[in-house]
Computed example of a mutant assay.
Amino acid sequence: MTDTVLILIDVQRGFDDPSWGRRNNPGAEANIARLVDSWTGPLVLVRHDSTEPGSPLRPGQDGNRFKAELDRADADLVFAKEVNSAFHGEIDLDVWLRARGVTHIVLAGIQTNMCVETTARVGGNLGYRVEVVLDATFTFDLEDLTADELTRATATNLRGGGFAEIVSTRDVLQRGRVLAADR
């Protein structure tokens, strides 16, 4: 599975701040932890360093730190970004991936319809095979759409637009067990 990397996006404590509003998928963190515990390939952790005054995701704030589910992660690369796409951070992620022969990226994290979706779209445009582990993401209600509606729209946009496959944590874990058994 060396051509495949797991990228965990913005799994940060600041998203627990009540100012974000109502979220969906309360099991996302447990699924992220299951992915971290079972993943045997390269692992990338991306952190959002907000430039917005008052944001709980600003550097120096406790909310900028990764959530406890990542405490045991043995990451190959950790870097920050200030925009939605992990491909536009302080590291040139495309160059890093290509230098390692990565052709397949598996994405999970926060927010489903923001940074996860944007990273999936850019990754698809760059020619990567992209999978989004939808049950290992969450988002918040936005304007007149619920978090669940936004998640469904993201899945439809990514799948229907040919940017990414939508998978579950169980799909990823089962594939990992099959690969391990074949070794």
Score class of each variant (00 low, 15 high):
151 T>M: 11
49 D>C: 05
1 M>V: 02
85 S>C: 12
163 F>K: 03
8 L>W: 10
92 D>E: 11
135 D>R: 05
51 T>Q: 11
17 D>V: 04
108 A>R: 08
160 G>P: 11
178 V>T: 15
122 V>L: 13
73 A>I: 07
20 W>S: 04
56 P>M: 08
119 T>V: 09
62 D>F: 07
43 L>N: 00
113 N>D: 15
33 A>L: 07
32 I>R: 02
15 F>K: 06
122 V>D: 14
83 V>W: 03
147 A>W: 04
62 D>L: 12
49 D>Y: 02
154 T>N: 08
118 T>W: 04
181 A>S: 09
129 R>V: 12
112 T>C: 14
40 T>Y: 00
156 T>M: 10
85 S>K: 06
155 A>R: 03
153 A>P: 00
151 T>P: 01
15 F>Q: 06
99 A>R: 11
139 T>V: 09
105 I>Y: 07
114 M>P: 00
138 F>T: 05
92 D>M: 07
20 W>T: 02
91 I>V: 15
171 D>F: 08
141 D>M: 03
161 G>Q: 06
152 R>E: 15
171 D>C: 12
11 V>C: 08
121 R>M: 14
99 A>N: 08
34 R>F: 03
31 N>C: 07
103 T>A: 10
140 F>M: 07
74 D>W: 02
97 L>F: 06
168 S>A: 15
47 R>V: 01
57 L>S: 06
178 V>F: 12
103 T>P: 05
168 S>W: 10
45 L>W: 01
124 G>S: 04
78 V>I: 14
24 N>A: 12
129 R>A: 12
177 R>G: 10
98 R>D: 11
56 P>R: 06
3 D>T: 11
162 G>W: 04
71 D>Q: 14
168 S>Y: 11
10 D>R: 05
159 R>H: 14
73 A>C: 06
11 V>Q: 04
110 I>N: 07
93 L>F: 11
58 R>L: 13
53 P>H: 00
110 I>W: 09
3 D>I: 01
179 L>D: 11
